[in-house]
Each structure stands twice: as C-alpha cells, then as structure tokens.
Design a protein around this nucleic acid. Structure first.
Lengths: 114, 114
DNA sequence: CCGGATCCCTTGTGATACTG
DNA sequence: CAGTATCACAAGGGATCCGG
C-alpha cells in the first residue's frame, strides 16, 4: 500500500529496536555525516584539515562531534606527542561499514542536478 | 591510502556541488529521517499518527519538519475538508527515491545488534 | 475533535577569543 | 595546532489554546 515498493523489506522493528533509528543515533546529524564523508574521502585528516574542509563548522561543534564519533568507535584518534601538537583522525574498520550509506546519499544527490 | 576501499568512488565534488551535502541539505536531521521512515513503512499517515509513532517529537517540530519536507517535494500533504479535520501525508515519487539510503541505514543498524 | 499555532523554557550550535 | 571558554542566538520539548 501507499506506493512504497520496498515496504515489505523496510519494516519498523517493534519498540525501540529499529535498526534505522540505531544508525541515526550514531551518525544522525549533518555535521557527523560530513565529518565521516571527509574521512572516507581522504583517509586520515588532522583537526585543522577537517575544519578547513567543512566550511562553517565551529571548533566547539567539531570537537563535540569528533568526541561522539570516537566514543561510538566510528573514528579513531591518534595523538602525536610533538610540539606543536599533531592529532590525526581516521575511520575505524567499523566506521568503514558506513560507506554504502554514503554511496546512496551520493546517488540520490546526483539526481538533484537536473 | 587510509584504508578506505571505496575512496575512488566516493569523491568530494569541487566547491559546494557535493551530492552528499545536497542530500543532507534536504533530509539532514534525525527527525526528518524518522518522518520519512514512517511514511516509507506505512505509505500514508495522518499528523497524529506520525506524532504517536515518533515518541518524543513535539508538535512544533513535527509541523516544522513536515513543512520543510513538503517544500522539498519529498512528501505531499492532502487536506480533507471535513470536521473534524483530516490531513494525510505521504511520500512523493521523488521521496521514494530515498529508499536505498534507508535500506543501507537499516543494514548498518542491523550490524549493531551483537 | 484534529491539526497545528503560540508561549515559555531548556538545550544545542555558531562566532570569537583565548590557552597548553 | 588542537582544542576550551564565553556569550548570543537558534532549534527543540512540552503545555496550552483555538479555528474549522
């Protein structure tokens, strides 16, 4: 019903175990998506590189999102004991499993061009 | 580099034409995702049904997100001139193109169970 | 009686300045 | 360089109200 040809494959799991919601609880903000996108494209990035690529993000928000993503084991943080400090972020093996989502986001976005 | 096996397929388009960002500009909030999920599963829903299914959303936010999604042509709104009023929301053909994204969100969410 | 609009208050986010 | 501190504002939750 409703014209949704995939409804038999996309079901809402009973009471708070919905896998879609679980995914969104990990990555469900625009900045989180874009940070992950950066790391998918470039592999490893420093704090300032992410900040430069994501025009408009404030350092406060960037720190907060990086911390959340690290706690969720989606990205990993490597601190080099140098002066000046160097910190590199990259996707974990777990985080790389998000790539199909991003490819579909890209595919949809490409349909917006015309 | 970086261990991201799809990096050759997932590229950042030059300067503000990134299709991933374009997608996120349309649906990039948790509530928007969840409203769309509801309509993908059930096809057509009334305002109060969406509100009941999305435990925790406020009427203010629900109205705002519905309005945005309608303006983006992702959902359509049908008002029945009855008393008491009845308003039904459903995905547009365009909105149905988002389904692959949600299937991948579901697939990823299912890997979180263990 | 349903679909919102309005009000008030809390929480999140942006900009800028600043520090180890 | 990689963040934190601070302030101002926007977004969101919750209750209440109201026109059709």
């Amino acid at each position: 019903m409703g014209g949704c040809f995939l409804f038999t494959r996309l079901t809402r799991s009973p009471s708070k175990n919905c896998p879609i919601e679980a995914s969104l609880n990990l990555i469900g903000s625009k900045w989180s998506f874009l940070i992950i996108r950066e790391l998918m494209i470039d592999g490893t990035l420093r704090y300032s590189e992410i900040q430069r690529n994501l025009e408009g993000i404030s350092p406060r928000t960037l720190s907060a999102k990086l911390k959340l993503l690290e706690q969720s084991n989606i990205i990993s943080k490597k601190v080099y004991p140098e002066v000046p400090p160097r910190v590199e972020y990259s996707l974990t093996k777990f985080g790389e499993k998000l790539e199909p989502i991003f490819l579909e986001l890209k595919n949809f976005g490409l349909t917006l061009q015309n």
